[in-house]
Amino acid sequence: MSWNRKHLLDIESLTAEEILTVLDTAKAFKAVGERAIKKVPALRGKTVVNLFIEPSTRTRISFELAAQRLTADIVNFSADASSFKKGETLKDTARNLEALNADFIVIRHSASGAPHFLSRVVNASIINAGDGAHEHPTQALLDAFTIREHKTNIAGLNVTILGDILYSRVARSNIWALTKLGARVTLCGPSTLVPKTFEQMGCRVTHNVEEAIREADIIHLLRIQHERQRKTMFPGIGEYTSLFGLNQARLAKTRPDALIMHPGPVNRGVEIDSEIADCPRSLILEQVTNGLAVRMAVLFLLNGGKGPQEVA
């Protein structure tokens, strides 16, 4: 088990073994979070910059706490308070951060590929915290970690991802991670938002929600992203809820051990009934806890130098 990457840009380019390395490492960091002293000195003296060009609260806070628990210093840089409004380019902003000796840049950006671009123009380690509709690798890793805690082995599981797949970076990263780890992935949602082209990623596509969730071990709901919707693509909230929302009647027809996940923030009463979000089968808050552990693991692994694991 070894890790030699400098950046975490996407899940697509990772091997199954690398994904499992992150998940195994995260297990140790989850244990750190359960101790009286929740902090370790692994990244002492390192500087992490949260470069969030698109608003986010939970992912930013999760990275912030992860860096702090590793004893790194962290600076937050958000779009509305920054020089972007004054016309500075992404490259110049990143170079300025580098001039402050940032070791890690955690970037969220509305443009797909922005993290990849940054990784070519600066020396810092780049972590993709969500780029457009492309990928959100740490979300997929924390989801896989959460599934693994409950189901032990991901290979052979039926995972259904339900909702707006087309615009979802969470869906894309999850599809890559889950298929690499051997799960059978089913995608479901309105046909405008779940085109058949996703079958090329190795998934099954269906537009019938009852059929999609009947045999699922994991039901992964996505948030309806109002900010990314175009009116022509989306049936309307009420119609979506009646056709695809997870309610008690639909849940009753699933396997009794099927678990429910959601990357948050949850739109209660839209993609999921309020009681279901709080029921024992819902892993939503565990996902938040695990996200912190996974992000600590990612920072820890990227901090490693090149070469062999064994020195002296």
């Binding site: 890790w3 490492t25 140790a28 692994a42 820890f300 490693g304 090149k306 694991q309 002296a312």
Partner: peptide
């Protein structure tokens, strides 16, 4: 007790495998 997180050579080598504490 796994001591990987407290090592002083973490950025000079590939990240170590962490064993359960």
């Amino acid at each position: 007790l796994d001591v990987s997180m407290h090592r002083d050579d973490l950025d000079r080598r590939a990240a170590p495998t962490i064993h359960p504490t």
